[in-house]
Write a protein that binds this DNA or RNA. Structure first.
Lengths: 218, 218
DNA sequence: ATTACTAGTAAGCGAGTAT
DNA sequence: TATACTCGCTTACTAGTAA
């Protein structure tokens, strides 16, 4: 979302457009934003096109209301500010369950990892990872995570190859305990890998595509 | 402040730059922002020029820290999001001081009103009201206000005429205590009438046309 | 490696104006 | 009154590259 559009959306929200339809003309909005009527009009068109607001054009003015999508964008922004100013010890993600390519199982079964999980996380990880695709909008939170101190799992070697270090954070998924695993050397990903002492798909009765809630403890 | 610069400042804050110096190269920043190294470099130059960050350029990378001014800008933004999403007990208005037609004084000096002000608001109102013209756009917020429970001032009669009931909300104007008065029977107006135990024009050293900040407590 | 200048291109803005 | 189009001007972006 373009930064200037987010600002406009915020202004509309401050006028109450998340809760009610707000009656406002493009000229009034322009005055509020200290810009031209034409630009204000364009802002509204863009926000509408992006699905952030709905508009009802009357003969005079227009009734504007922020959509669910628009409110979500604002919520996300708000969360980031909370993260900045509040001393938070947890980060919340929502996402949906996806299938990996069986790699998770391969890795978690390496004793080099498994032993460290047991020692540093205090549980024996069920073979495999539960992969959760987070919404693109939440990638900022993921990045944030990478800067926090984590439970470190060291790299190790076998006869065949080297396995890289990973970072872990204690976490819950739909209130079930476990941890998320972040490869130290990884490109940007929108997948969270969750390990747990339990077979989560069964325990939580979840399948691919289901929405889940992940809480990460810092 | 330009919207895109605010976004960058927020990103730096998320990296911890409000609390510590953060070591980051323009290229790294560029990757996080999904933009070019040149643009990231320009962002940092602009933020520096605006006094939002301080930079220590080393031979490699640079140490960046958000200044007090920068943090203030973020705080202001955070406040606005709180206003949007929290069950707030206050509403903010900005507006400018205007002169009424002396009516305020006539009304506030009626003992029927003055006695009730003293009883229900806890102060003896200085004769007259300070009138603040709110920006037209904020009339939407004013409309919200009319739905909240207010301190009620009852109508009364004198030998000559009837004086209508009014609603009051405790409020501050530029941090000075008082209340705003909304006539029960009134057309929509973009004027807020402020009463206070003090002579506000003198106490706050304000005159017609000055911008003031009003906080209304619900 | 790094920052940041220059220059050409793309995006955003607002005056004029059609509707 | 409104909204929103066109179009010339300004601002922002990035490739190339110097330092």
């Amino acid at each position: 979302m373009k930064p200037y559009l987010l600002q406009i959306l915020k202004e509309l929200a401050l006028l109450g457009a998340t809760k009610n339809r707000v009656e406002i003309s493009s000229l009034e909005l322009a005055k509020q934003l200290e810009t031209s009527q034409q630009t204000a009009s364009r802002y509204l068109l863009e926000l509408d096109k992006d699905g952030m607001i709905t508009r009802e054009l009357g003969i005079k003015k227009q009734l504007i209301r922020i959509t669910g999508k628009g409110e979500e964008a604002l919520q996300e922004e708000y969360l980031q500010y909370q993260q900045i100013f509040e001393l938070t010890n947890k980060i919340r993600f929502t996402g949906k369950v996806v299938s990996g390519m069986g790699e998770g199982r391969y890795y978690t079964e390496q004793s080099g990892y498994a032993d460290q999980f047991k020692e540093r996380l205090g549980f024996v990880a069920f073979p495999g990872t539960l992969n959760v695709e987070i919404r693109h909008i939440e990638k900022n939170k993921l990045r944030l995570l990478k800067n926090y101190n984590a439970i470190q799992i060291d790299e190790f070697e076998t006869d065949n190859r080297t396995f890289g270090g990973v970072k872990c954070f204690r976490a819950t998924i739909n209130n079930a305990d476990g941890a998320i695993v972040l490869p130290l050397r990884s490109h940007y990903s929108n997948i969270l890998e969750f390990i747990s002492p339990h077979f989560l798909r069964e325990k939580l009765n979840i399948k691919d595509g289901d929405n889940v809630k992940i809480m990460i403890y810092l």
